[in-house]
Each structure stands twice: as C-alpha cells, then as structure tokens.
Amino acid sequence: MSTDISEHRKKLLESLFVAGRENSNAVVMFHTAVAAHIGLGMTEEKALDLLQRRGPMTAGEISQHTGLAPASVSGLIDRLEAKGLVHRTRDTRDKRRVIVEVDYGKLGGFANLFDELVAGLTELYMGYTDEQLEVILDFLTRATAIQQAATPQVP
C-alpha cells in the first residue's frame, strides 16, 4: 500500500478496520448466544449452518469449508451426532465415502432464533441501490475468502 495517501483516506481505512472488528464481534456474540440457547458450542452451530446451506458433505469437505483440521472436524461431527442433529451415511455411489447429513426433525424452532436478525438485515438492504448492493456483496465475498484463507494458517 502506498504511503502517499490522504489523511481522509487514512482515517477512512482505520474506521473500516474498526467497523470490521465491531461487526465480527457482534456476529460472534450473536452466534454464541444462539448456540448456547440450543445447547451447542458456536462451532457446532456454525457447522450445522454450513450443512444446511450447502447440503450433505463429507468430513473432508467440512474441513475445506471451515478451515478446521480434519481431527477437529471428526470430533465436531461426533458431538453433533451424539446430540442427534446429524447422522453419517455411506455414499450410495462410493461406499468408502461417509456423508454427514442434518437431521432436520431435530432442529425445530432453530430458524425462529434468526427471525429478528433476518428482518433487520432485510430492512437494511432495502435502503441500498442495486449498485451499492453489488459493491457490498463483492466486499463481503472477497473479505470472506481472505478470512477463510487465513483460518488454516493459525498455528
């Protein structure tokens, strides 16, 4: 980054980093509260979210999407399975592969915990133009990729 930037831009960049940290803290605290409410750890709650959004996956795929070590993912799946929230099944095409699937019958009321958040974000999004939403989407997509790449680098 060039050291020849305006004071306004320096302050804007600093404010962006602070806002990003504040957003990250708010997200972590929200998901910690949701997870605790349903008797899960936050990693378990986010793994369920991943499986709900992307569908059934192998442990290796979960590891790739989370950046967690394979041994950590195995323990995570064991905990979710012990709580009856997921089950393992053999891949019908490749019997060597084990697929992790959400047991949706056990998640009753889980989605309701997000109603207020979703309503608030929907209202927020409606205040932006399509062009602004495209910039926000680009930023979030690229920032997420940076975060995901950084996760497995943590010693």
Rank of each mutant, 00 (worst) to 15 (best):
S2E: 08
D4F: 06
I5L: 13
S6L: 14
R9P: 02
R9V: 14
L12H: 09
L13Y: 08
E14N: 08
S15Q: 06
S15E: 15
A19Q: 08
A19Y: 13
A19T: 11
R21L: 13
E22T: 09
N25L: 14
N25A: 10
A26H: 12
F30A: 11
A33Q: 12
V34Q: 00
A35I: 05
A36V: 06
G39P: 02
G39L: 04
L40Q: 03
G41F: 07
G41H: 04
M42I: 15
L50A: 10
L50K: 07
L51R: 07
Q52I: 13
P56W: 08
M57A: 15
M57T: 14
T58G: 13
G60H: 08
E61A: 01
I62H: 03
Q64V: 04
G67V: 01
P70H: 12
P70M: 09
G75T: 03
D78T: 12
E81F: 01
A82Y: 04
T89I: 13
T92E: 15
R97F: 06
R97Q: 15
I99S: 02
D103P: 00
L107V: 11
N112G: 07
D115C: 13
E116C: 00
E116Y: 08
L117V: 00
L117D: 00
A119C: 01
E123A: 14
Y125F: 09
G127T: 05
D130H: 04
D130A: 09
E131A: 10
I136G: 00
D138L: 09
T141L: 05
R142D: 09
R142W: 10
T144H: 11
T144E: 12
A149F: 08
P152E: 14
P155M: 07
P155K: 11
